[in-house]
Computed example of a mutant assay.
Amino acid sequence: MSSLALPDAVLERLQISSSSRRRSIGIKVGPDGVRVLKPSSVSRAEVMRLLQGRRHWLLEKLALQQQRSEERPDHHYGNGDSFALLGQQLTLTVVQNARANRVEQNADQLLVSLSARGRKPAPERVRELLCQWYMAQALAHLEALSRRYAEQIGERVASVKVKLTRSKWGHCSRAGDLQYNWLILLAPAPVVEYLVAHEVSHLVHMNHSREFWQQVEVLCPDYVASRRWLKRHGHRLVI
């Protein structure tokens, strides 16, 4: 069957790459479209036949991605814009021509001061400063919470890092290094606590067995609701 049988919505956003290490075809639908990873021995025609058989599934996934894109906040990074922090909504105020770049939280206000020396457009500078501020807040909060939870179960955290990741909210290595997506601080506090409980529990169980989820529940008794919230609303956590 010709690739033309696939809808334009799929063809226009289709990426196919090969790897000699792969043993099967993998299909992933994300914000960038449809990505196919195939073994080198598999032809493009075979991939197209597989995609044609899953055309309805692909269209449903692409529609979901479009819906999620429309649900993401459209920030303008100016006065009156709003950003969440552990469930609290903060209203942005931008001060121009300040002595230095600075971000401060005062109750439910988020004050961003812009130095007069900056050359980039103000919204771009505000966004950069907010990202830096949230990263710092996330590292402090997530490290303290991780070490506290680890101590509760008699485990040791080797290190805690934060970075911007595209697919995972957290990761735990066998060496005890924890990594989090700092955007999680935009979520309500119980959701953040669930994520930390999840990664710290991997210090005991490097899997998602029944014992692992029992360990998560010890640290975060209401984890089911928070896990569900993150799956449904995680795409909205953007700056």
Rank of each mutant, 00 (worst) to 15 (best):
residue 131 C to V: 15
residue 54 R to T: 02
residue 138 A to N: 00
residue 188 P to G: 07
residue 167 S to Y: 01
residue 133 W to H: 03
residue 101 N to C: 03
residue 36 V to Q: 04
residue 189 A to R: 04
residue 117 R to N: 10
residue 167 S to F: 00
residue 56 H to R: 07
residue 201 S to D: 13
residue 170 G to T: 08
residue 223 Y to F: 07
residue 136 A to V: 06
residue 45 A to W: 14
residue 47 V to Y: 08
residue 147 R to Y: 03
residue 190 P to A: 04
residue 221 P to K: 05
residue 18 S to W: 05
residue 107 A to S: 11
residue 221 P to Q: 09
residue 90 L to M: 14
residue 236 R to S: 01
residue 118 G to C: 08
residue 159 S to T: 08
residue 22 R to E: 12
residue 96 Q to R: 03
residue 195 L to S: 06
residue 226 S to R: 10
residue 134 Y to M: 05
residue 224 V to R: 14
residue 135 M to Y: 02
residue 124 E to C: 04
residue 155 E to L: 10
residue 183 L to F: 13
residue 29 V to K: 12
residue 205 H to F: 09
residue 229 W to R: 03
residue 135 M to V: 00
residue 151 E to K: 14
residue 90 L to Q: 15
residue 76 H to Y: 15
residue 178 L to G: 12
residue 12 E to N: 14
residue 158 A to Q: 12
residue 43 S to Q: 15
residue 181 N to S: 07
residue 7 P to K: 09
residue 43 S to A: 15
residue 21 R to T: 11
residue 157 V to P: 14
residue 64 L to H: 00
residue 215 Q to V: 01
residue 149 Y to Q: 07
residue 104 E to F: 01
residue 162 V to A: 14
residue 231 K to L: 07
residue 214 Q to V: 01
residue 91 T to A: 11
residue 222 D to N: 13
residue 73 P to Y: 15
residue 188 P to K: 03
residue 137 Q to M: 13
residue 215 Q to M: 09
residue 103 V to R: 04
residue 126 V to K: 04
residue 9 A to R: 09
residue 124 E to V: 05
residue 16 I to R: 11
